[in-house]
Design a protein around this nucleic acid. Structure first.
Length: 490
RNA sequence: CGGGGCGUAGCUUAGCCCGGUAGAGCGCCUGCUUCGGGAGCAGGAGGUCGGAGGUUCAAAUCCUCUCGCCCCGACCA
């Protein structure tokens, strides 16, 4: 059945398309425990690229990595009122160990604020000990009711940065600096455009003063919160007695920030760039940027073309035009007993950005036949100067993917929606991002959610706001306090 | 936790209404021929029909219980 080989299309059933794509491109698989998943090498390879890029950026902004433990005393969670309220329902709790009931249950971290600020309190005495700028790469557990591969699983991988500062302004600066890092990463590495902004009270992190976020639009026009950066104020410092003596000898509570992105980004990558053929990985995150498929008819050709393919790979990998540490990532598909056509489909499903076909005719011409994954455009590239041409093409693919994603988002964003009824109709149908006024009341926001399932994704930063600020609230018509981006979300 | 659906080979599934002891496609293994967009032929391996109990001469099929999964709602990176 030829149809068995095709994915359910996005238009038919977006959610089925997503699941099939993740499973069949071998990004991940279901594990025996409901709601948790195995990240397979294809998916983990992308995560490793993400980690490397982000980690470099964190280091460049003065952060260091450390590791805090998985288990947290249950009482820690209770020290910050909002925090416990937000996380207690979804915590996994260990009650037994070593065959005995524990005196105090241990919570499996849903996030690490409590344990980390407890430790910071031990380490900080003076303003001279500040700031502390630490990040950790870790797994966390949140006992979700409804799970989806990468987007929401019981356990996921992420990085969580936790900093402590002497002043509010310094903490705020840090919060915004990281938001900028996330935005740069999303745009330049993931080729995924995001809106930056501030979360409303109902959507902010449990225990934070303010939560900033990056929000991306998926191909079903729903929003995905792709990263958050919190100014925690002194809430945790007060709960954990994280104090220091300032220059005047006065005791003061530190100001904290925390920020994170997770493997959820892989889900965002799929829903931003995937098509009905499969995944499309932006070159900068692709574990394999170029796959070379040699084509042969008989043993003689097989020998010649295998040798030629390996030679092309060597030339590409040895090229240092992108810097000695950033070599082209190339794979040669030498599998026998599989036709070249079948190989093309498989690499397209997996999203490798560039494919070089190399057959006798190409060899004769001293060229490779190059196929772009993003546009599926094909062209012959001469062997002479191939590495530089390949690198340039990959860069073009990266830029084009970003541009296409921006265009799609803008095409599905609405400013100046005429009425709440029009909004309801839109959310009932195509969906999208709606820039509209908000009176500032939690109740109004909750009503909209109840009536349309849409929420305020963020109060967008200045550069995303409409030229003319909306005058009235989307729902109640009262004077608008802020322009908000409304959308249904994952 | 409420509503709906489904459990048969690695995957997709037919058979179930009307009981008679399991079949197909894909995938996998072997061989030959193939090879520029999902190869063809021949041979082969693989299933206690989610589990337990019941009805019956006989259960994938009927009944009861149970477990698991998926979809829709209340919570969420």
């Amino acid at each position: 059945m030829a149809d068995d080989k095709k994915l359910t299309t996005r238009a038919e059933d977006f959610s089925a398309w997503y699941n099939e794509l993740v499973l069949r491109s071998e990004l991940a698989d279901y594990s025996p425990v409901k709601g948790s998943m195995v990240i397979r090498p294809n998916g983990y390879g992308i995560w490793e690229r993400m980690q490397r890029a982000l980690d470099d950026m964190f280091k460049a902004t003065g952060h260091q990595n450390a590791y805090f433990p998985l288990f947290i005393p249950e009482s820690f969670l209770h020290k910050e009122a909002e925090h416990v309220e937000g996380f207690a329902p979804e915590c996994a709790v260990v009650t037994h160990g070593g065959g005995k009931k524990l005196e105090e249950p241990l919570v499996v971290r849903p996030t690490s604020e409590t344990i980390i600020y407890h430790m910071y309190a031990k380490w900080v005495q003076s303003y001279r000990d500040l700031p502390i700028l630490i990040n950790q790469w870790a797994n966390v557990v949140r006992w979700e009711m409804r799970t989806r591969l990468f987007l929401r699983t019981l356990e996921f991988l992420w990085q969580e940065g936790h900093t402590a500062h002497a002043t509010h302004d310094e903490a705020e600066e840090e919060t915004l600096k990281i938001l900028g890092v996330y935005r740069t990463f999303a745009e330049q590495w993931m080729a995924m455009p995001v809106i930056t902004g501030l979360k409303t009270n109902s959507e902010k992190f449990a225990g934070a003063l303010r939560t900033y976020c990056i929000e991306a639009m998926m191909q079903d026009n729903k929003a995905l919160q792709a990263g958050t950066s919190h100014n925690l104020g002194q809430n945790f410092a007060k709960a954990f007695e994280l104090q220091f003596q300032d220059e005047n000898g006065q005791m003061a509570h530190a100001w904290n920030t925390s920020w994170g992105v997770s493997t959820r980004l892989i889900g965002g990558l799929v829903m931003t760039h995937g098509d009905d053929i499969g995944l499309r990985v932006p070159p900068r995150l692709a574990p394999i940027e170029i796959v070379i498929v040699p084509i042969w008819k008989n043993d003689d050709e097989k020998a010649r073309l295998t040798e030629a393919a390996l030679r092309v790979k060597a030339e590409l990998v040895e090229w240092t035009g992108r810097g000695a540490t950033d070599r082209l990532r190339v794979h040669v598909d030498l599998r026998d007993g599989m036709r070249s056509g079948a190989k093309y489909y498989e690499w397209e499903l997996r999203g490798v950005p560039l494919r070089f076909e190399l057959g006798p005719k190409d060899l004769e011409k001293q060229a490779v036949f190059a196929a772009r994954r993003d546009t599926r455009a094909k062209q012959s590239l001469p062997m002479d100067g191939l590495p530089a041409a390949a690198a340039a093409l990959l860069e073009t693919i990266q830029q084009d993917m970003f541009r296409a994603a921006v265009e799609r988002r803008e095409a599905n964003s609405v400013r100046g929606i005429p009425s709440y009824d029009a909004f309801k109709a839109l959310m009932d149908g195509a969906g999208g991002f709606v820039y509209a006024g908000w009176c500032g009341s939690d109740a109004c926001e909750a009503k909209v959610k109840e009536e349309t399932k849409a929420t305020i994704r963020c109060i967008p930063d200045a550069e995303f706001r409409s030229a003319e600020a909306p005058a009235t609230c989307l729902r109640c018509g009262a004077p608008s306090q802020a322009e908000a981006v409304w959308a249904k979300a994952y």
